[in-house]
Design a protein around this nucleic acid. Structure first.
Lengths: 220, 220
DNA sequence: ACGGGCCTCCCCCGGCCGGGGGAGGCGGCC
DNA sequence: GGCCGCCTCCCCCGGCCGGGGGAGGCCCGT
C-alpha cells in the first residue's frame, strides 16, 4: 500500500507542485489538500494520512500551531513534514520542537522531496541541518532576518516594554504613547530607551524595523 | 492552436506547480522548462514559446537580466510574465522596466495564473495596480494593509524618493543616506520630506511602517 | 522657447528624540 | 527582612529631525 499524504499550504501553486511531484511516484499518493492549518484536524481524522506536508507560514493558523493541534488531538497522529521557503526559518525550528518529524525546503529537487516523504513515512526523523546549511550557503541572503529574529528572541522585553514597542510600530510618538498608556512622557522615554538598548537599535525607526524583521509585528 | 509557455524558475516545485496548473488548460501548453535565466535564450530560440513565465529571483542570472537578454537577442520575442513571491518586489518593477509584459504572484489562485498567461498571450499588458489590487483584495481581509498598499500605489514616488525610502527602511539616518547616495544631507532631507508628504507620514518611522505594511519592503 | 518635473543644495528654526544619571514605590523571591 | 526587577517620574542637554521657503541646473515634452 502506498504512502498517503495530506498537503497543507495556503498557496495553490505549491500544492499543485507537491501533488505533481509526489503523485508521480507509484508508492506515494496525495489523498487531500488544505489551504490552512485550521482545516487540518478534521481532514487528518477523516483521511488518516501517513504523512502531512505542512507549510509553516500560513495566514490563519500557522504550521507550528497546526502541528501542535494535530499531535494533541489525534491519536496515532501522522508524521509531519514542515515545508518552508527559507532555510533556517525560526518557524521551522519551532515546528520541530512542537513535534514535527522533518522538514522540506520548497526549492529542494523533486527527488529530495520524494525521498523526505518516504523517509519520514518509514519513521526516520529528518533533522539534517547540514543540507540546510549548504543550501543557505548556496543561496546566501536572508541573513539579516535571522539576526533580527534572534535579537528579538534574546531581547527579553518586559511586558511594558513590549507594549511600548507595539505602539511604536503603530507610528505613535512618545507623547501619544504616554497618553495611550496613561503615564508620563518621561516614563515612556525610559521604556523606549530600554527597548532601544535591548534591541541594539539606535533610534525608534531601527527598533520598528527590527520588530518587523523579527516578526514581532506582522505586516500582512 | 494552444498558447505555448516556457517556464523559468530555479525551484522545480514551482515549475511543477505551474505546469500542473497550465497544462490542465486545453488552450495552454507548457513546452519547456529552465532552471535559470542563463538557459533561457537557446530554449526560446528553439521552442519559440508565446509566453515565458520567469521567476525574478534566481541564482545565476535573475529574471531582470534574463528578460533583457531575451528581448535584445531574439527577434519576435515571446511575451514575458515575471513570477514573484512578494508583491511590490523591487525586482519586479525593474523587470517590467526591462520590458516584461506582466507579472504573477506565486500565491495567486490557479484561475488567476491561467488568466494572466492568456491575457499576455493576447497582447494585453498586465501592469500592476489593478491586478495587484485585486489580489490584495482577494487575499487581504486586513483593511489597514490594503489602505497602506493603496497609499503606496498612489504615492507615485520618484525613483530617487523610492531609493531614499528603501534606505530609510534599512534604518539609515539622513547623514548615512547622504553618504550612501553621494549627495548632501540637505538633498536627502528634501527627498525625505517629499516621501513623508506623499505617504502621509508624520515622521520617518511612520514612513517605514507604511513601507512594510504596503509590501514596499518584504520582511519575511 | 517655454514650462514642468526631478534632483540638487541652501537657510532658519522649533521640537521631538535619545543619552546619562538619579530616585522612589511596589511586588516577588530567597 | 533584604534584595532585585519592574514601573514610574525627574533634570539636563546635545543632536537629529522635519517644516517652510527658496533656488539653480537638467532633461523632456509641448
Amino acid at each position: 500500500m502506498p504512502v498517503t499524504v495530506l498537503l497543507v499550504d495556503d498557496e495553490p501553486l505549491v500544492r499543485a507542485g507537491l501533488r505533481a511531484v509526489l503523485d508521480a511516484q507509484p508508492d506515494i499518493e496525495v489523498v487531500g489538500e488544505a489551504a490552512d492549518g485550521a482545516a487540518v484536524i478534521p481532514l487528518v481524522r477523516r483521511l488518516r494520512p501517513d504523512v502531512v506536508a505542512m507549510d509553516v507560514r500560513m495566514p490563519l493558523m500557522d504550521g507550528i500551531e497546526a502541528t501542535r493541534a494535530v499531535l494533541r488531538s489525534v491519536d496515532r497522529p501522522p508524521k509531519i513534514v514542515v515545508v518552508t521557503t527559507f532555510e533556517n526559518d525560526e518557524y521551522v525550528y519551532e515546528a520541530l520542537r512542537a513535534g514535527a518529524d522533518g522538514f522540506l525546503l520548497k526549492r529542494a529537487r523533486p527527488a529530495e522531496i520524494v525521498n523526505a516523504v518516504r523517509l519520514v513515512a518509514e519513521g526516520e526523523s529528518l533533522l539534517f541541518p547540514a543540507s540546510v546549511r549548504q543550501l543557505a550557503a548556496a543561496y546566501g541572503e536572508d541573513r539579516g532576518n535571522r539576526e533580527a529574529r534572534s535579537v528579538m528572541d534574546r531581547a527579553a522585553l518586559t511586558e511594558r516594554e513590549a507594549e511600548v514597542l507595539r505602539l511604536m510600530t503603530r507610528g505613535l510618538s512618545n507623547a501619544e504613547i504616554a497618553a495611550r498608556l496613561l503615564v508620563g512622557t518621561e516614563t515612556v522615554k525610559s521604556h523606549v530607551s530600554a527597548v532601544l538598548a535591548k534591541l541594539g537599535a539606535r533610534d525608534r525607526t531601527q527598533a520598528v524595523i527590527t520588530a518587523y524583521e523579527s516578526g514581532f509585528v506582522a505586516p500582512g
